[in-house]
């Protein structure tokens, strides 16, 4: 009897929390998504101290902190050279209901100490960004590498990743673009787990519920039926 109960409870928990178990280290990942490394506020306003960033800006877009030669401290040499074409725009959201913007590459896998060249192709008429966070700050001011392409433009840039297995956040930082689907991850080596809310890769940490309009009535009905059934069972049990 009690063994059955426990089995039941475990099943229930598993159904509800399996997604949480699957994406390990819940807290650190949510934090990583947007907050990491909040608190080490050493970057300041981008607009005010862009001086320390290595940046090019023109009407086709910008590239910031490109680095194709300086090795991270923990790398002896460049192990591999990668080149990825990343398309970005509204059309890349069409496979994922409830998103508006998207990128063609949402999961990029590279080996440690490799150089990564991103060719960022914007298929919309407005600007978009390919921005990666969490790179070593001694090489990349603010820990970021950033490509920005004006509407219909292409931007290319290179950076070199360090040696540790880590998952990096990639997104477009225009207001609501990441929230509306322009989010990806770059895994170095085995990575350090999946980030949340990457279309096709992981679900949202705080998803909408999508219940039918009359769901409150259904719930009340279920509550009532549950009570009635229990009463009936108890009644029958007592009788026979």
């Amino acid at each position: 009897m009690s063994a059955k109960k426990i089995f039941f409870a475990v099943c229930l928990l598993a159904i509800n929390f399996f997604p949480l178990l699957q994406a390990q280290q819940v807290d650190s990942h949510v934090a990583h998504n947007m907050e990491d490394p909040r608190g080490q506020n050493d970057m300041g306003d981008l607009q005010s101290n862009h001086g320390e960033h290595n940046m090019t800006l023109d009407s086709d877009g910008m590239a910031m902190n490109s680095n194709w030669q300086t090795l991270p401290q923990d790398c002896a040499k460049i192990i591999r050279e990668y080149k990825f074409e990343v398309y970005a725009g509204t059309e890349f959201s069409s496979d994922y209901p409830g998103t508006i913007y998207g990128m063609s590459e949402r999961e990029i896998l590279v080996e440690p100490c490799s150089s990564v060249t991103i060719k960022f192709i914007n298929t919309d008429d407005i600007r978009h960004q390919w921005m990666i966070h969490g790179l070593p700050r001694y090489l990349y001011p603010g820990g970021m590498f950033h490509l920005e392409a004006a509407g219909g433009q292409i931007r290319e840039g290179t950076f070199i990743v360090p040696s540790d297995d880590k998952t990096y956040l990639v997104h477009c930082d225009m207001a609501q673009h990441m929230e509306m689907g322009m989010k990806a991850q770059l895994k170095v080596g085995k990575g350090s787990g999946d980030l949340w809310s990457i279309p096709g890769v992981s679900r949202s940490f705080r998803p909408d519920t999508y219940l039918p309009k009359a769901s409150r009535n259904y719930l009340m009905l279920a509550l009532f039926v549950g009570a009635m059934l229990t009463a009936l069972i108890l009644h029958l049990w007592r009788r026979y």
């Binding site: 608190g39 506020n41 970057m43 607009q47 600007r127 920005e148 225009m174 207001a175």
Partner: peptide, 20 residues
């Protein structure tokens, strides 16, 4: 106005930059 870069003051901040 059409700007470049992030919508927030910086990556650590959740505050919109002053022009937004």
């Amino acid at each position: 106005p059409k700007t470049f870069g992030m919508a927030t003051e910086n990556f650590e901040s959740l505050k919109a930059r002053s022009i937004l």
